[in-house]
């Protein structure tokens, strides 16, 4: 009994109740109509997850991740509701740019089928570019890192090139590449290539010399050395670059989908922002955030699996 109460009387639960109660405050005259039902429905859905996690997850560490993250989402929603529809902090002239959460959630629900198509198309674009970049950057990085003299020179050149935003290349990509789609993929390739290349090169340079010596005494050379010894030894560091490349790819998704795309999350956000529909644009931004979180989580699982030999 005492344990149940202890799991119930936690700050996130109090925040959930606060979020519901503030809906009862009187609304200001606001340019975008709020839909408090949607906010409440989301709050209840989150609360159910919170309760399930509080009582079903045995491990303290993982349960705390659930309660803390959900608590922070409640704080964010409370602040959002209060700042927009309840107290009108932006001021009436700027209201059109700051929709309340209920309105965004309503758009999110109405556009859900379109959003699923957008997610599919954007992921296809990102993985197309990202996998091309990784397939080129990892072998090249292994080669450059292993051949130290040419690698040192290449290091400076890649520092220079990686500092240029891929957005700069867009006009050239459109002129030089056959399709708009190819130009979009190119933006993602250009974004993720450099961090993966840099981390692969430094990963190779930092491989424990004793491991290489051990491999040499086994008469390992050539391709076996590069792909069976150097690649796995450098993999922990390569993953750092792969993580960065993935983040940058998502950041540049909006730019990549500016080029002739007719669907996709970046296109969706861009399109509605251009027409001043910030409620829909914001729904798109939140969708991108959710997709990035899920992909990052899956990527971390892959990383944990491939690096399971690390302490």
């Amino acid at each position: 009994m005492k344990r149940i109460l202890k799991r119930l009387f936690i700050v996130p639960n109090a925040l959930f109740i606060a979020l519901l109660l503030i809906q009862l405050l009187p609304d200001k005259a606001y340019r975008i109509e709020d839909r408090p039902v949607y906010t409440a429905a989301l709050a209840i859905a989150l609360e159910l997850i919170l309760l399930a996690a509080s009582f079903l997850v045995k491990q303290d560490r993982i349960r705390h991740i659930f309660t803390d993250v959900l608590g922070l989402i409640f704080v964010f929603l409370i602040f959002w509701v209060l700042a927009t529809i309840k107290f009108d902090l932006p001021g009436s002239a700027k209201q059109a740019v700051f929709p309340p959460p209920g309105a965004v959630l309503e758009k999110f629900t109405l556009d859900l089928s379109q959003t699923l198509v957008n997610i599919r198309d954007s992921l296809a674009l990102i993985f197309h570019g990202y996998l091309l970049a990784a397939a080129a950057a990892i072998p090249l990085g292994l080669f450059l890192g292993w051949n130290m003299r040419i690698g040192a020179a290449a290091g400076y050149i890649s520092k220079f090139l990686s500092s240029i935003s891929p957005i700069v290349y867009i006009p050239y990509a459109i002129v030089l590449l056959p399709t708009f789609r190819a130009a979009s993929v190119f933006v993602i390739v250009a974004a993720s290539f450099w961090p993966i290349l840099a981390s692969t090169m430094s990963g190779v340079l930092n491989v424990e010399k004793r491991i290489i010596d051990s491999a040499k005494t086994l008469c390992v050379g050539g391709f076996t050395m590069l792909f069976r010894i150097i690649l796995p030894a450098a993999l922990p560091q390569i993953f750092i670059g792969c993580n960065q490349g993935l983040s940058v790819s998502f950041i540049l998704l909006v730019s990549a989908e500016m080029i002739g795309a007719r669907s996709g999350l970046g296109y969706y956000v861009n399109n509605y922002a251009n027409f001043g529909n910030y409620t829909s644009a914001l729904a798109g931004v939140i969708t991108i955030g959710i997709v990035v979180t899920v992909i990052t989580f899956l990527f971390n699982l892959l990383q944990r699996f491939l690096l399971r030999w690390k302490q």
Partner: peptide, 19 residues
């Protein structure tokens, strides 16, 4: 150079940690 007529054991990292 190295040869398969010799085998080596070191104090550390004789084994490859990913295998």
């Amino acid at each position: 150079g190295p040869g398969t007529n010799r085998a080596a054991v070191f104090q550390h990292y004789s084994l490859f940690p990913w295998m």
